[in-house]
Structure formats: C-alpha cells, structure tokens
Design a protein around this nucleic acid. Sequence first.
DNA 1: CTGATATACAACCACAAGGTTGTACGTTAG
DNA 2: CTAACGTACAACCTTGTGGTTGTATATCAG
Lengths: 115, 115
Amino acid sequence: MVVYQLGQESVDRIFAALADATRRDIVTRVMAGESSVSALARNYEMSFAAVQKHVAVLERARLVSKERRGREQIVRGDVGTVRAAARLLGELEELWRARIGRIDDLLAAPGGDAR
Amino acid sequence: MVVYQLGQESVDRIFAALADATRRDIVTRVMAGESSVSALARNYEMSFAAVQKHVAVLERARLVSKERRGREQIVRGDVGTVRAAARLLGELEELWRARIGRIDDLLAAPGGDAR
DNA sequence: CTGATATACAACCACAAGGTTGTACGTTAG
DNA sequence: CTAACGTACAACCTTGTGGTTGTATATCAG
C-alpha cells in the first residue's frame, strides 16, 4: 500500500476541495463508480464549465484523477488521498486522547503539581 | 456519546476551516491543551487580530470553543467535530470499498453482463 | 464531409478570505 | 487611580473562489 506524505499546501488543497457541497457530491459519485465529466455535469444545475472547474479543483487536490477515453474524460476517485485526510483528523483525535490521559494522571496524583 | 448530525453548510465550514495551515496548527495546539487567544497569537508571525479571526473561523465551524476566564478567552478543541469530519471521510472510503466489492463480483461472474 | 458531442480554456464579474491598522473597552497589577 | 494587558470589532486592501459566457478543438455517427 502506498503511504501518502503530504506537504502543507497539499493538505490545504484537500480540505479546500472538500469545503464545497458540489465537489463533495462529485467525489461521492466517483468513489461509488467512475463517470465522465459531462455525465457528472448533468447532475447539477450549473454550467458544464463550472462542473469542469470543480473537477479540476478535485484533481489538483488528488482527490480524483482523469483518464481520457475517446472523446470523454473519465473521472475516478482516489481513495488514498481520502485516507490521508482521514489520518490527519485521526492524529488530532489522538492528541485529544493523550491530553485526557494526562488530565486523568493529574487527578490521580494526590499531591498534584507533579513537575 | 453525542452524535453529530451535520448540514451541508456545517460541513462546508469545517473543511474550509481546516484548509489553512495556521488554523490546523491552532487546532493541533488546543487539542493537546487549552490556551488563551493571546498565548496562541505569540506562536505566529501575524497580528493578534489575524489570529483572533482564525480562532473565530474555527469557532464558527465548532472545531474549537471559547470560554472567558477573567480577561482571557480560553480556547479548547472540540473532538466531536473532528470525529464528525473523520466519519464523513470514512463514508467515502466505504463507498469505494463497496465499488471494489462489486467489481470483484463482476469478475467472478463467468457470464459477465449479468443484468 | 457535416453535425452533434465532449472537452479545454480565456475573459469577466461579484463576493468571500486573509491579512493589515486603528480604536475602544473590560480586567488585573502595582 | 493608572498603566498594561487581553480582547473585540470596524475599515480597508489584495487576492482567491465560484459562477457565467464565448470560442476553439478533437472525436464520433452517418
């Protein structure tokens, strides 16, 4: 399995890409099954060009990839990037858990102020 | 345990808030241990007002909460929101897994094209 | 070849984001 | 009381974002 090592700008792009309901919907669709850009566009009430831009944002964030098939571009979801993002959130949870652990330790120490 | 049910705008705010390295750093710090806004501000090379704005963005996204303590505002991380975001990403992974499962089924069916 | 389809991309617009400085006000230290 | 500290917020500026329309190009059907 490929392990993703992400720079700050990559993380910026991933979360920024996910901060739009249309783009989250696109990712949802292509994770469930690949689709051409025009087929995706038919699902939304905006112009084809707008959808094309959304796909481009997702592509820059590596949340999806495109592959040309004849005159169509087939869009696929990239689960590795999703997992990388989920792992970052998991690390935040871990920090929180560690803090709770320390608080428990403090409460358990009768003298307190254990430096 | 409280289960978070998020509207689209809430999800927008959460991911948008996480799409900035300074804000991710703030969340990281307050998950590890609470801190006043001014103490946070000392870690960055921007103005106090800028950090204050970042905290406000995180607060609107419910990634952190503030509590006044004397003249200071104490910032704390909200692990529930982080978990809610992680769960959304988990659902995307789940869609992907389901798709892989279906592809396996197709490959396993000798006749193919089972409509 | 012709016409419809799928895409790419530039130009434009309105508005939000991320930063600054300046001002005001409540709280704590001396 | 006074001064310093911590915060809040408004005004402003520059850049980015999300949409539009228009034009160009490549592929497929007949």
